[in-house]
Design a protein around this nucleic acid. Sequence first.
RNA 1: GGGGAGGUGCCAGAGUGGUUAAAUGGGGCGGACUGUAAAUCCGCUGCUUCGCGGCUACGCAGGUUCGAAUCCUGUCCUCCCCA
Length: 427
Amino acid sequence: MQDFVANLRWRGMVCSATPGIEAQLEKERTTGYVGFDPTAPSLHIGNLAAIMLLKHFQLAGHKPVVILGGATGMVGDPSWKTAERRLLCEEELHYNQTCISKQLQQFLDFSDRKHGAVLLNNMDWFRDMGFLKFLREAGKHISVNYMMAKDSVKRRLETGLSFTEFAYQLLQGYDFYYLYTHHNVKLQMGGADQWGNLTTGTEIIRRKTGNAAFALTTPLITKADGSKFGKTEQGNVWLDPVMTSPYAFYQFWLNCSDEEACKLVMVFTLLDQATIGTLIQTHNAAPHQRTLQKAIAKELTIRVHSEQAYRQAAQAAEILFGNATQGDILTLDEQDLLTIFANVPKITISQEQWRDLTDITDLVSSVTQGIIFKSKGEARRIIQGGGLSINKIRITDPHQKPDFFLLQEKYLLIQQGKKQYYLVVVQ
RNA sequence: GGGGAGGUGCCAGAGUGGUUAAAUGGGGCGGACUGUAAAUCCGCUGCUUCGCGGCUACGCAGGUUCGAAUCCUGUCCUCCCCA
């Protein structure tokens, strides 16, 4: 049994833990769990740290349990949230659960080995419980004073908190108790924001059985500027390739700052301490190479998506941001071209429109329906400022005749600024 | 119900009859530098025009005037104070 806690510690993945946890893990193969409320049809990278906890737990020889909180998801966790949340209906939750459980297979071994992971839904024991039974089984053992004293709830007492959300920690606490008694689960893990909920669970177990159960939290990952980790301007970074493309996913990791990358490489990759040490050294010697970011992006893109998705994302990045020249894009066949520019807006124009063009400005404004530039004036300004390239060649004259050759005889690669690409398809 | 303040461009905010497409700051966008970063510097930031110009725009609707964001009338909305 490898030392799970020590492994987490050097990775900086332990925020707090109840006493005695090391002794318990050393004593026997232990079953531990993490709960996810299926509030969306996909996990996002904010959930990933908790998944990594389970991953390390399993790799250390212990048995992970995942709770997809069909019941808790119906209530809504108020921890650290500023406002009451929207209630989700059961069908929505069920659909989300199905999607999420598939994603979990990519991380954990759900085989029937001794330490194979198990997936449970707390709806199974809450559905038929009844309110009175719950009050007697769970509510009787925990005082309101205890529940209100949690930091995670305190701030909401000022602005308002429904009884429903207030009761959330009891649900989660009871989950732990149920798992303890029915599945021999002795440890619950989660993000640092979950500490209040986890200790409610250990408290219920202690009061009802007199035995100790354990809790461990991992620090919430914060960005240097204080904004929330895992969000881009476009919103959450999801694991689902439809909601966040593998390319965008790869880019997210690649664009992490150096300080973040040092932390992220320990939390999100499975590389060992020595390898990470070397990586950080290499990185610091030549930070512009972004060794760390690339290592993280590679490992995660492969694990969450696939080897192929990683290669495509890396190639796309090279073409889009490297010093690709016209020669480089000419070497791409149509398949490559479409893959690399899969996430780029495509604008179709007709053969007639293409033939009748007299002016580059018209092409990037009116003919393309204002998608690239919403007015001719804007197009002209950007071109005069040197901000437009076609097929990787910078355009300098707004009135240039658009006598470009078409890539693969039908595509035109239009680039605004450094990052914004459009693909015009002539059909 | 009474009294007061105010509604200006993506946002904040100046302007109180012509020189105002509207100061200034922020944001956004382009360029340079760079690591697809940060900081910095430069440029652009209503539509149209190669430009002159034309058009649209200061809550909304009218009016006064050669000329209105600016004055008048009505109207809608917001904020503050009192009841």
